[in-house]
Design a protein around this nucleic acid. Structure first.
Lengths: 104, 104
DNA sequence: TTGACATGAAACCAAAAGGTTTCTTATAAA
DNA sequence: TTTATAAGAAACCTTTTGGTTTCATGTCAA
C-alpha cells in the first residue's frame, strides 16, 4: 500500500467529507451518495480511491455494499507530519513520540 | 488560506520531497532544481503551489530567490488527522491534545 | 559594457482527475 | 414471476495537473 495513495485519497474535499460521514459508522453507497449533489457513479469513484488508499473497507450484504472507515491508514500521514512538527514547535514533539510509541 | 490548498500541496511526491530538502534550510531555485530530473520551470510550478499552501516562503536576494519552509502550515492537516486518530487508537488522543493545547 | 547567470513568463501538450449518461446485472419484494 | 431497487461497468467529456520548450528580464562579474 504505497503511501502516495493515502495522500492522493485525502487530497479531495469530497473524499474527506465522506470520511467524516463514515466516522459515524457503516454506510451503503446510496446512503452516502444521497448526501451529495453529484451522481452515484461519481461517488463510487471516490469510494474506490479511498479504498485504494486503505481508508475505507467494503463488504457486500445482499444488494448493498457497506463501507466502513479504516482510519489507521492515516497513521503514515501522521508520521510524515510528525517529522516536520519538530520544526514548528518543540511542544508538539509529543505528537512524534505518541506516533512512534504506537509502533511497538 | 483555505485548508484545501495545503492538502493539494502535499499531495504530490515531488513537493513533499522538496519540503524535506527545505527542512535543512533555505535554498535557491537552481539549488532545488539540480536535485530533480525535471526542468527548472517545472520546479518553479511546484514551489508556487507550495507557496499557495503556505508551506514555503520566498525572499529575493540579488538575482536569486531563496525558499524557506513554513512547516506550521501543516498544523491544519494535523488537526484534521487528530479527529480521526481517536478512532484508530485511544492512546493517540495525545496527538489531539497536543495540537489543541498549542492553539492557546 | 558585455557577457554569463538566475529566474520569470507564456504557449503548448499529454495524461490524470472529476464528473456525466447509458446500459447491464443481481437481489429483494409484490 | 414480474417489478423495483442497489449497484457495477463502460464510454465519453471537460478541466486540472505536471511537464516541456522558447523567449524575455534583471543582476553580477570581467
Amino acid at each position: 500500500m504505497p503511501e502516495q495513495l493515502v495522500f492522493r485519497a485525502i487530497a479531495d474535499p469530497t473524499r474527506r467529507s465522506i470520511m467524516a460521514m463514515l466516522a459515524n459508522g457503516e454506510h451503503s453507497l446510496g446512503d452516502i451518495a444521497s448526501n451529495y449533489e453529484m451522481t452515484r457513479p461519481a461517488v463510487t469513484k471516490h469510494l474506490k480511491i479511498l479504498e485504494q488508499g486503505g481508508l475505507v473497507k467494503v463488504r457486500t450484504q445482499g444488494r448493498e455494499r457497506l463501507h466502513t472507515l479504516q482510519p489507521e491508514a492515516l497513521r503514515s500521514v501522521a508520521e510524515w507530519i510528525s517529522f516536520f512538527s519538530q520544526f514548528w514547535d518543540e511542544k508538539l514533539d509529543n505528537l512524534k513520540r505518541a506516533v512512534e510509541a504506537d509502533d511497538e
